[in-house]
Amino acid sequence: MKITTQSLCGTMVKEIAAISGENVAKCYQCGKCTAACPVNMAMDILPHQVLRFLQLGLVEAVLNCNTIWICASCFTCAGRCPRGVDLPGVMEALRAILLRKRGFSRFKAGDMPRVLNKGMPEQGIVSGFRKYTK
């Protein structure tokens, strides 16, 4: 993969910025998000790399990674980011783009009673809504 003037001018980055309300240029790549992420071991690209790829306009690489689905939306990264980057918001925007393209939500409000049981942490339910609904 090569970064060129063309790839850097993609429009997709603007869409992600519009959905998330976040300017990815704020990130200076310290890697705090990755260091703090409790599920980074399962990710194919690391959270800080998601932001770097977006800064470079490499949107395809980000949309095809498993990271955005592994992300538990726990907000640890956002809580510790020295630049105040809302990375969970960016992750959500990336998922929303894919879900909107796909056209359906995996997780509907009607399904709620079925999955609700004592073993399901509340954050898991909220996270599920975040991750699998458009």
């Binding site: 993969m1 090569k2 970064i3 060129t4 003037t5 850097l8 790549q29 790399q49 770097r52 790829f53 470079l56 490499l58």
Partner: peptide, 13 residues
Amino acid sequence: VDSLSGHAVEIEA
């Protein structure tokens, strides 16, 4: 090169 992403870079300047 962008060593942060590990990618080669080509820019028409």
